[in-house]
Amino acid sequence: MNAKQFVGIAVTVCLATATVSAQAGSKEEKMLDAKAAAIIKSDFRDKGIAKADRVNQDELQAACSKYLDDVPVDLKIKLEDEQAKHIKWPADGNLMGDWKAGEKLAQSGRGMTWSDKAEDPAGGNCYNCHQLSSKEIAYGTIGPSLLNYGKKHGTPEKAQRRAYGRIYNAKAYAACANMPRFGHMGILSEAQIKDLVALLVDPESPVNK
């Protein structure tokens, strides 16, 4: 066996072990999964708007947790299709709002924590994770840079559709993406998502300047 083959085998073995532990196959692993689930159920309590039932997972959250965000491809496709089915596209077909309102939303990091009030509108948190306007230097890097988004994604119609779909539900395109499902989970309204689409696609927006 030459060095290359050896590395090949070693990699295969490693992958196999990784899969086994991620799939939670053994009896012991199942017991640990059950115990973890029971502890999570019992050890959280309501605080402000964050009620204890928030720890209950939907199908997608459960699958991403179980497979450490690396779900088998057939399940991934199934989950993405299911998410895509529920995207609500604007009835009037217009995807563009006001980029200035979008920029304000993108800057705001508030929303949905137990220190937020029910009546306080949620922000987009976009700058927490993305570079958007070239003028804002305090941006996070969990998500890709969205600088020049409008220029990068073909015709305005194509770019608008791409942006709207992903902001509404990023998981319809990548099942375990680290981005929240802003439309699907009711965090942002249709009008707010349109404002963010404008921020990303409008040629006058600082994202494209």
Binding site: L32, R54, V55, S65, I187
Partner: peptide, 19 residues
């Protein structure tokens, strides 16, 4: 169990510690 909690995604933003 701690490792599982670290990777547990839930809530309105689908976040886990691992996010």
């Amino acid at each position: 169990i701690g490792k599982r909690i670290f990777n547990y995604r839930a809530g309105p933003y689908d976040f886990a510690c691992s996010t």
